[in-house]
Every structure is written in C-alpha cells, then in structure tokens.
Design a protein around this nucleic acid. Structure first.
Ligand SMILES: [Mn+2]
Ligand SMILES: [Mn+2]
Ligand SMILES: [Zn+2]
Ligand SMILES: [Zn+2]
Lengths: 140, 140
DNA sequence: TCCTACGATGGACACAGTCCAAGTCAAGAA
DNA sequence: TTCTTGACTTGGACTGTGTCCATCGTAGGA
C-alpha cells in the first residue's frame, strides 16, 4: 500500500498531508472501515482533517480502482484497500465483522445465459453471512 | 401473496387497512421497492398512511421471514416479497434495476472449510452487476 | 356495544452522504 | 529561494434514509 502513494503521484495527484494520512489508515489486511471510521483514525494522526476531505479522497481512490466500496448491510459503506486481489466477503450477522474469503469457483461461471435476461454481466460479489467465532460462542 | 394475509392473521396480526395496503403493494414478481417507494404506492391507495407505519410493517414482515431485505448499493434498502423462493440478484450499475436470477450452483458449496475462519456460515447472497438491456444500448 | 391492548400517526431525532463558497497550500516557474 | 496559481481542504448547510416516541385511534374479543 505504500507504493500506492507512488502510483498516485504518477497519476498527477497533489500530495497533501490529508491524503497521506487517509492512505496510511487504509493500509493493512482485512481493512473494511466505514468513512467515519477512516475519519476517526485519520484524525488521530492529523486532528484537523475534515469529514469532507475523507469522503473526497475515498471517492477518488474508488474511481481510480485503488479501493473498493462494499455495502454489506443497509448501513454505512465500507472501504476496502484490497482492490488488486479479487475476493469475496464473510460477514458476521451479529457484530458486523468482515473477513476476506476466496471461494473455489467463480460465481459468474454459474449464471447460465438464459438467466442473464439480456444483461451485460460484468462481475459477481458474494456475501457469506453467518456468525464469527466469538459471536457463535456467545450465542451458544 | 394474497395468502400472506391469511398467514399473518394466523400469526395473530391485527388486520388494519394500512397492513393490507402494504401487502398489496408488495404483491407481484420482481418487486424490489425501497421503503419510500412502498410508501408512495401505498399512499395512492390509502392517502393518510404514514411513513412510520410503512417502516414498521416492512420490519415486521422481514422478522416473520415473509419479506427479504436487500442492500444492493449503499443507498436505500429494497424489500423483496419473493422470500419463499431462494434466489439471487442481477443489478444494473446504471439505472439500478434489479432482476431475480437462479444460478446453477449454490455458492455456499464453493466456500471450503479453510476459508471459513471458524465462522458458522448460514447463507450466501450473490449480487451480479452489469448493464441491463436498455442501458447497454444507451452506452454503446 | 363497550374496552383495551395493539397499532397508526407525525414530528423530532440520528446517521450517512453530498455540496458549496471561501480560504489554504503543493509544486512548478522564475 | 520566493512567487503564483489552481488544485485541495474546510466547515457548515443540506438531502436522503431510517429510528424513536408520546399520543391518538381502532380491531376484535368479551
Ligand atoms: Mn475485502
Ligand atoms: Mn428478488
Ligand atoms: Zn461477530
Ligand atoms: Zn439499466
């Protein structure tokens, strides 16, 4: 993710402390933060960063294909920096935790032509729902 | 869907004109309306119905398993009365149209044990994204 | 017909996201 | 190094979606 900053500079991005901090917050594995969570963490590193800037930067990263937007519930969208490794999501129905998963088959292959209704189908996202280990424990 | 009202009566539901109208609006195939769309249509049949009642009724129908909530984008949730016939969704990225589809394989079967990370996985939803016939045309 | 607990109502509130006018500053030019 | 300028940031207003609650109304049993 640190080469992300390089790539962005290459694309003509002006490097501001705000953008650096947002990129830093998004660094890591299994990061699926909401915009407000990104803002909260960014504000610990750069207290005066505004919500609008976080939204702007996230939106730009999404347009550039560097970050993926995931809508697992009807709540806040989550931002996923793991954009260059296709994967799907396993979501805990109780606590909302999100994990990356890699199914053994591409679900696109399992949608027959007669089930496409003339659509030009570009992608398939799978959301697996269940209980994470600690919520399974708690519910038992 | 008309037997829905019977089932609800059986469950001890008090039959009000508001609930009848919401059920009526949800009747049909490929219905994937937002709460506000349900409210708008219901209000044509029963002008004084309130938004709160529509939300309450939809929420109850979801808890009873009679209606499914779908979050295709980060926008408004959609309500799907086709709850007794498992299916997935094909969404137009441009206009938001939603179609029911039936893949040839259950995606749950394609998530190997070592990709479950201790979760108790209960269900899998697939969202296929692409362009509907008319948006494909328009974009060409 | 009467009672009353369940349901409906509308308005306030909370949360997620967008938009804008004004101020600031990164980075190229000189 | 300083200057200049347009891209970027900011706070706050605004919209859309959803929840909550006190109060009122009524479905349906006695
Ligand atoms: Mn992910
Ligand atoms: Mn459906
Ligand atoms: Zn959990
Ligand atoms: Zn379309």
């Amino acid at each position: 993710m640190s080469d992300l900053l390089e790539r962005l500079r290459g694309r003509g991005w002006r490097m501001t402390s705000q953008r650096r901090v947002v990129a830093q917050v998004l660094d890591g594995d299994h990061v699926h933060l909401t915009a407000d969570e990104v803002h909260a963490r960014a504000a610990q590193l750069l207290p005066e960063i505004s919500r609008a800037t976080v939204y702007n930067t996230l939106g730009e990263l999404v347009s550039l294909g560097e970050v993926i937007e995931v809508a697992t519930d009807g709540r806040a969208r989550r931002y996923d920096p793991n954009a260059h490794h296709p994967h799907h999501h396993l979501v805990c129905s109780t606590c909302g935790t999100v994990r990356d998963v890699h199914p053994s088959r591409d679900p696109l292959a399992d949608l027959p032509a007669e089930e496409r209704f003339g659509f030009t189908v570009a992608a398939a996202e799978v959301t697996y729902r269940g209980l994470c280990p600690s919520c399974t424990q708690a519910g038992a």
